[in-house]
Write a protein that binds this DNA or RNA. Structure first.
Lengths: 225, 225
DNA sequence: TTACGCTTTCAACATCTGTTGAAATTGTAG
DNA sequence: CTACAATTTCAACAGATGTTGAAAGCGTAA
């Protein structure tokens, strides 16, 4: 079998180095030589394990995507099951989306922080945002919107999707950890404090969604479909 | 004097080409030769007008930043003046932040769309997000938070800044125009329809901010300062 | 016209880029 | 130990990259 035995799996060292560097400088801002140096490995080794550069990038993205999805899907199904046969509350749905990825102890590991910053890079890239995010996260998102549809039956789909857009933007910017809010707030908020940010974002986003149900005049568009 | 006279100002052609390419592929994803080709100009000309590559990038960012800021600052001061001596409403403040840049006719110009996508790229970049955004947009943001402080006197600064974080993330993702929401919503929402997105984002964000005033239990942290 | 300064092109540089094939090393099973 | 396969390094390639200095083109004022 592969893996599990080697003391220092250079394959993983390369993935870690690539993750750290891609997350900070983007795909084109990183050379295979820089990755190899960071990993303490020869340049050619990355090509041996992953093929061309672009495939290494995909491998980095893929490595943690499934774990991420399973955590959130689990929390979401739990919330739905607990509320059955009633609909779950918007607040619980939103919490199931954020808390598994922002408040658990793993967020303090540098590897996960780097991965989150990488997701931020991909999600806001006009080049890859549309395709890559879709490829990795669409099934979860669809399940998530479905749950919101249950909790907010009077709200039109168009509102739900734009609400998700706002949610995704807020989460993504938190992922990026640019340090901007630190400077803006004079140190009051820290962009690397993801659990701390979670509380505020959850409440903010919950209210944003619930507002759609309270402002029925916007829902005229529902009839247009 | 400079400018104004030449029929085809190649300097502007270079800025336009750089803007379009940087916004799609990021700083490192674009070569000076690609920019020169797009502009129909020799490679060396970019260096003559702007110096090294990095300075060209800054020049692209700078060109529209002041216009953007003046539009929004004007709208914000107008809203504050109209409400005086009372505090302006949260909804009006948020509208003053979004509408000048999302609903005016200029958003249909490719140049402005490219510039917005570029802002999305910069804002979510761990490398530049902290410094560049601060450099170009902080004065406006501070004035904006100040207005929110008037409208929501019971809300702690920490909540206001995290609220701004959510707002900024939602706006930035809209700027990126990745086409992701198009796919996710089966064409119901279009990521290049910025005026359409504006309505939903404004209401979403407004409710997010107002929620802070209604959930006083979160405000315990205000006393901790 | 001439002369001059600003703009644009041309040609070339040193360096870096992703990738590859062969050689060396390591691990493992007989 | 031997033989063989998987891993890792070495050396080098063809092409691309940012930058530069010299030359050519341009408008304008004398």
């Amino acid at each position: 079998m592969s893996g599990e035995k080697k003391k220092t799996d250079k394959r993983e060292l390369i993935l870690n180095a690539a993750e750290a560097l891609f997350s900070r400088h983007g795909y084109d801002g990183v050379t295979l030589r820089a990755i190899a140096k960071e990993a303490g490995v020869d340049v050619a080794l990355a090509n041996y394990h992953f093929g061309p550069k672009r495939d290494l990038f995909d491998a980095v993205l893929m490595r943690r995507a499934q774990i991420l999805n399973s955590w959130r899907l689990e929390a979401l199904e739990q919330v739905i099951a607990d509320a059955a046969p009633s609909a779950p509350s918007v607040h619980d749905i939103i919490r199931a989306y954020f808390e598994p990825i922002l408040t658990r102890p793993h967020v303090e590991e540098p590897g996960w922080k780097n991965y989150y910053a990488l997701i931020a890079y991909v999600n806001n890239s006009p080049e890859w945002g549309g395709k890559l995010m879709t490829q990795f996260f669409d099934p979860l998102i669809n399940r998530f919107v479905e749950a919101l549809r249950l909790a907010l039956p009077s709200v039109a789909d168009k509102s739900l999707f734009w609400g998700y857009h706002c949610l995704s933007g807020a989460l993504t910017l938190a992922f990026a950890q640019t340090g901007r809010i630190d400077h803006l707030s004079n140190g009051l908020c820290r962009s690397d404090d993801l659990p701390g940010a979670c509380d505020y974002i959850v409440d903010f986003v919950t209210a944003g969604f619930e507002q759609f149900a309270k402002n029925p005049e916007k829902e005229k568009e529902k009839a247009m479909l």
